[in-house]
Measured scan of single mutants.
Amino acid sequence: ELSWTAEAEKMLGKVPFFVRKKVRKNTDNYAREIGEPVVTADVFRKAKEHLG
């Protein structure tokens, strides 16, 4: 699991709890794919757009 900024964690907190774990995993995987060592708010937004 990658490191997350406080802002990205806050955004994740707005995701319904029953899918939060999956969203975190998918976002981590997306960040790795694009070469990001940390999940930022920008990476979170891009993952959301990319993953739907």
Rank of each mutant, 00 (worst) to 15 (best):
K21G: 14
K10T: 10
I34T: 08
F17A: 13
R24D: 00
T5E: 05
N26E: 15
L51H: 12
K46L: 07
E7I: 05
R45Q: 12
P16E: 04
V19F: 14
K46Y: 05
V19T: 09
G52K: 14
R32E: 04
T5K: 02
K25M: 14
S3I: 14
E9R: 10
A8S: 03
A47K: 02
M11C: 07
L2D: 03
I34H: 14
A31T: 03
V39E: 00
D42P: 05
D42M: 06
L12Q: 01
A47G: 04
P16R: 04
E1Q: 12
Y30M: 03
M11E: 09
N29S: 11
V23T: 07
L2H: 04
V15T: 06
A6E: 13
A47C: 06
K22M: 13
D42W: 06
G52F: 10
K22E: 13
Y30P: 00
V43L: 08
A47P: 01
S3R: 11
H50W: 11
K25G: 07
A31C: 07
K48G: 09
R45I: 12
F44N: 01
K14Y: 08
P37A: 12
E9V: 10
R32L: 08
Y30I: 03
T27P: 00
V39Q: 00
Y30L: 04
D28F: 02
D42R: 06
K25N: 11
T40I: 01
R24M: 05
E49W: 10
T5C: 04
L12F: 04
P37I: 11
G13K: 15
D42C: 07
A8E: 00
T5M: 03
E1P: 15
P16L: 05
Y30T: 02
G52P: 08
K46F: 05
K48S: 14
N29K: 11
R32Q: 07
K14T: 08
L12Y: 03
L51W: 15
N26R: 13
K22V: 14
V43R: 01
K10P: 00
E9K: 12
Y30C: 03
P37Y: 11
T40V: 01
L51A: 10
R45P: 02
F17S: 12
A47Y: 14
G35I: 02
A41N: 04
N26T: 12
V38F: 07
G52E: 12
R24H: 04
R32T: 06
A41W: 04
A41F: 04
